[in-house]
Design a protein around this nucleic acid. Structure first.
Length: 994
RNA sequence: GGGCCAUUAGCUCAGUUGGCUAGAGCGCACCCCUGAUAAGGGUGAGGUCCCGUGUUCGAGUCACGGAUGGCCCA
């Protein structure tokens, strides 16, 4: 190969060049490796995954580790409503995989069983959407069959995606909440919880979607703008409470004096849902508010809160001056007055409630316990403690059916069969006709909608099965504090949620799920559920799945029970019905600690498992449902550590949405960059907060990946003739730079290990990056290249450098495994057997089996850091000084210059002397270094630059010796060896060795 | 509307209990090398530490208020 045209500075010895055509390049030890510079991730990563599968690497790992020393990360099941995965799911799975792989390398037994959540409304809806003619043209059994097929098909799709991310786990045996055994366990768990008395049947308002005809969990409700009515309605007073029936503070004499004031007066309520008025059974006011009685021309005497008087008056189109304030009452004074319902022959008592506010309205709240949570709670309280209502409790009335249509319970003939929202206008008309309507308008506000069909939802009291949280709330809260929450603030988050949450409504009026395993006697509506029946159902479901509930009659379901029990329960004599509600899907996933972990105890060990790791939204979801069920069953939390991550936003910090077009698809990323680049992104961001991703971010990750790859490639290329068993050089024989580099390696390994122990992967990324860029590429490689290439292959200092390189490789390779397992494997597979750093007969089949590197105290040498900090800062000054002649065209590479270092600083001078001029020249990659205490005389005919920094003067001048044709250094020994007129002494020797 | 969290260079992150001129790597610009080559080396330019007020000799750091974004709730 011919050298390209030289620049002016090379023209110093043109005759020598032309005189000798020998191609010395052939005699150099240039890097040789099959490890490719380009990853070719799209194909190579797939090959590597095939390699893992073929050699059962995951299974090998498990088999080799000690089950007694376990770290079990229990997978939270993604929902099978789609066969695609989101970037957020990718983030989640990759984090889990990094954790698992790291712990495995640390010697833990780390089984990972991927899971899937296969029941639930979204799946059912997706399937129903594809049924021509709607859901009722097929049987429920058929619908369930299709749901199952749909879920399983999606599982296949998601699984392919997960595996392609390089996620390690028991893919042959995942858990699915629709497995017969899982479902059977769920039946058993329900029975156990029922038996312990946590389950009750209640009438309670819940979010209800009339179009989906189902109750909704809080999490299934989304808020969106909605135009509602805003109406003010009169409730005339009909009766005052008898003496002694009111609040204790009530002064009867005082009351009597004031009563005439109230005679003929009406409370004014404000509501945004006129259609709930047929269900009105009370009014609520606040004990501490002041209420005024006013006289109006059009509406007579009205009662509203004083603080809201002004807004109320202006709303009904009056001036404050036009109304006459007749008197004032404290809220407590008005309690238990009875008012008349505006259009139903019924009384509505006035109750006191803390939920009444002065934000809007009149300070008098229309109370329909069947249509509002707070209404329900205040009524329950009065029914419990107020003697009047203990005798005749206020009813929980909810006169609309599943489809949102009024029933005859509304006691309004015009409304019968009318959809609730249509009822608004009818109610308005009735109020108008009765003269009860003071004012009506419309306004837009935030209102709950069904997350599935996007229609407005209502509150509706229905019969449902509940879990009574109060029975174990304290235990649940105590269990929270036994858990290590990562980040710490997660503790407060879930604590306040559990502290304040209401009862858990288990019932869902759907078919795609696990049935609530309860029978009713048709005659009495009594409930039939016993441990024997549960045990029987458990056995049968285990074989036939929960489909059985839809396929068999109660008698068939219970046919296998012992005759004695049948007799006892009256089976065959009294007709039975099945409960046809299914369980909330959060209950399904909430019991994976039992249906998965305990069921596979041999493999997964006992509860609590080491870690749950999900997005921070799961404080309300899976973390909570798992905690609650586990506390009910076992009295303790199911996990020791709960790690959470934030959400994935776009590059500018905005939520991803199809409409904004800023969605990042993990498969697109993989196609363009490969899974390891995506994994590197996961490791690089602070996942404890929300994280960002976009084109720029990914490009940067790709750059880092390439840098790491090329750094390793350089090492591999220069170890082609190195056998650690034969050529390793003892530490004592290494140069100071070698030892400094090994110290740096130890330092960085320490930082990396610490980062992993604290789960701070982004710190790991910075360390790896810095190691490759600064310590290796820019320093160690740059400086030692000359030795590696030009020394004789067996030269001791070359072997020393190789020893150091091998040390770096041995440390970096295992450390790359958790984050970039494909890259690590690619490196591993290109290593010759002799360089595979397996100890004690480990399998050499995969890099993933390499243990995490142990610190090597022998390589720790802090004193070297001090001296090298100084030397490297001088190198920086030298570089700056060399920029001047370079920019002026005098030199190109630094070897074309030599430098003189002048210092009067005794310590620095000593350090330079001790280091030695040759060593300094090597470190600075210049041709010669002179250390002096006084500035030398300079040859005015040549270029020179001077730069002073930190008490050291750097003087750069042209290299003063001929260039060696082989190593390109400017050396005094060039031409001194017979037969090699163009070579320096070292190269002459090296050439002989070749 | 309420609660929690975040905001340091174009990007990803450092910045101890308040204390030198706010750092690193990448990216960018310019230069060099052509024996790591769709590589490699060097130099350099980038910051209203989200904004405001306060506490203090001194605030990226502490307090209060606000903005923007996110999560949860109503």
């Amino acid at each position: 190969m011919n050298r390209t045209t030289k620049k002016g500075h090379r023209m110093q010895e043109p005759s020598v060049q032309e005189a000798n055509p020998v191609n010395y390049k052939e005699t150099l030890n240039l890097p040789q490796t099959a490890f490719k510079m380009k990853a070719g991730a799209a194909t190579r990563e797939v090959e590597i995954e095939a390699h893992w599968e073929e050699h059962q690497v995951y299974e090998t790992m498990l088999a080799a580790s000690d089950k007694a020393h376990a770290f079990v990360l229990h997978d939270g099941p993604p929902y099978l409503s789609s066969d695609k995965i989101h970037i957020g799911t990718a983030l989640n799975k990759i984090l889990k995989d990094i954790v698992t792989r790291y712990k495995s390398q640390q010697g833990f037994y780390t089984p990972y069983v991927p899971g899937y959540d296969g029941h639930g409304l979204p799946i059912e809806n997706a399937v129903v959407k594809n049924i021509k003619g709607g859901r009722h043209v097929i049987t429920e059994t058929e619908l369930r069959k299709r749901c199952r097929e749909f879920a399983l098909a999606n599982l296949k799709g998601q699984e392919v995606n997960f595996k392609r991310l390089g996620i390690w786990g028991d893919w042959a045996h995942p858990y699915i909440s629709i497995d017969a055994e899982f479902e059977a366990t769920q039946i058993r768990v329900f029975g156990e919880i029922y038996d312990k008395g946590f389950v009750y049947k209640g009438l309670k308002p819940v979010y209800w979607c009339p179009s989906c005809e189902t109750a909704l969990a809080d999490a299934e409700v989304e808020y969106a703008d909605h135009v509602s009515h805003s109406i003010y309605v009169k409730f005339p007073i009909v009766q005052f409470p008898g003496a002694g029936k009111g609040e204790e503070a009530l002064n009867v004499e005082e009351m009597d004096k004031r009563v005439p004031l109230l005679d003929g007066a009406s409370f004014v309520i404000w509501t945004t849902t006129p259609w709930t008025l047929p269900a009105n059974l009370a009014l609520a006011i606040h004990a501490a508010f002041v209420y005024v009685v006013i006289e109006t021309a059009d509406h007579g005497k009205l009662i509203v809160a004083e603080d809201l008087l002004e807004t109320f008056v202006s709303t009904i189109g009056l001036e404050l001056a036009q109304v006459n304030v007749l008197g004032k009452f404290c809220g407590t004074e008005l309690a238990l007055i009875k008012t008349r319902h505006p259009f139903i022959d019924r009384e509505s008592p006035v109750l006191l409630g803390e939920h009444v506010t002065l934000d809007a309205g009149t300070g008098v709240v229309h109370t329909a316990p069947g249509h509002g949570m707070e209404d329900y709670l205040v009524v329950q309280e009065y029914n419990r403690k107020e003697p009047v209502f203990q005798e005749t409790p206020i009813e929980i009335l909810s006169p609309v059916d599943n489809a949102g249509k009024f029933t005859d319970e509304a006691r309004v003939p015009e409304l019968l069969g009318v959809f609730y929202s249509k009822g608004n206008e009818i109610v308005l008309q009735i109020l108008q006709d009765r003269g009860a309507l003071i004012q009506s308008s419309k306004f837009s506000h935030s209102y709950p909608h069904c997350w599935r069909c996007q229609n407005p939802v209502i509150y509706r009291a229905t019969e449902q099965w509940f879990i009574d949280i109060n029975q174990f709330r304290a235990d649940a809260l105590a269990a929270i504090d036994t858990v290590n929450w990562l980040p710490e603030r997660g503790r407060n988050r879930i604590f306040s949620m559990v502290e304040g949450r209401g009862d858990w409504c288990l019932s869902r009026q759907r078919v795609w799920g696990v049935p609530i395993p309860i029978f009713y006697y048709q005659d009495t509506r009594e409930v039939l559920i016993t441990p024997e029946i549960i045990a029987h159902l458990y056995e049968r479901f285990k074989v036939h799945s929960s489909d059985l509930w839809w396929e068999e009659t109660p008698e068939q379901l219970l046919a296998g029970l012992p005759e004695a029990l049948k007799q006892q329960y009256g089976i065959g004599q009294r007709l039975l019905e099945k409960e046809m509600d299914i369980m909330d899907v959060w209950f399904d996933s909430g019991i994976t600690h039992t249906a998965v972990v305990k069921a596979r105890q041999d493999e997964l060990g006992d509860l609590p498992v080491a870690m749950y790791l999900e997005g921070s939204d799961q404080h309300r979801g899976w973390f909570q449902s798992s905690l609650l069920t586990s506390v009910m069953l076992y009295g303790k939390a199911p996990y020791q550590n709960v790690m959470t991550h934030g959400f994935v936003l776009d590059e500018s910090g905005r939520k991803m949405s199809k409409s904004l077009g800023n969605v990042v698809d993990p498969n697109t990323v993989i196609r363009e960059y490969g899974a390891d680049v995506l994994r590197l992104w996961v490791a690089s961001v602070d996942y404890t907060n929300d994280v960002r991703i976009g084109k720029g971010t990914l490009h940067q990750m790709a750059e880092i990946y390439k840098k790491v790859r090329n750094t390793v490639r350089f090492i591999l290329g220069n170890l082609y003739d190195f056998d650690p068993a034969q050529h390793r050089v003892p530490y004592a024989q290494l140069s100071t730079l070698d030892r400094y580099s090994l110290h740096r390696l130890q330092h960085i390994l320490g930082n990396i290990t610490e980062a992993f122990e604290k789960w701070e992967f982004y710190r790991y990324c910075h360390e790896i990056q810095y190691l490759c860029m600064a310590d290796l590429s820019a320093l160690y490689f740059d400086v030692t290249k000359d030795i590696l290439y030009s020394d004789a292959p067996n030269a001791p200092r070359r072997r020393a450098v190789q020893t150091v390189l091998y040390e770096f490789l041995s440390t970096i390779l295992p450390v790359l495994v958790p984050v970039t397992p494909h890259l690590a494997e690619d490196i591993w597979l290109s290593l010759p057997e002799a360089q595979r750093m397996c100890t004690n007969g480990q399998s050499s089949v995969s890099a993933a089996l390499l243990p995490w590197p142990q610190p090597n105290p022998e390589h720790v040498h802090p004193a070297l850091v001090q001296s090298f900090d100084t030397l490297l800062s001088i190198k920086e000054t030298v570089n700056q000084a060399l920029e001047v002649p370079r920019s002026e065209g005098h030199i190109g590479k630094s070897l074309q210059a030599q430098v003189t270092l002048v210092t009067q600083d005794a310590d620095k001078f000593a350090l330079l002397q001790q280091t030695g001029e040759d060593e300094l020249a090597t470190l600075f990659v210049t041709s010669g270094v002179t250390v002096a205490q006084q500035a030398p005389q300079l040859d005015a005919s040549q270029w020179h630059t001077r730069l002073e920094s930190n008490g050291i003067q750097v003087i750069a001048t042209p290299a003063s010796f001929p260039e060696c044709a082989r190593c390109w250094k400017y050396e005094p020994t060039v031409g001194q060896t017979a037969g090699h007129p163009l070579l320096c002494a070292r190269c002459s020797e090296a050439v002989k060795a070749h």
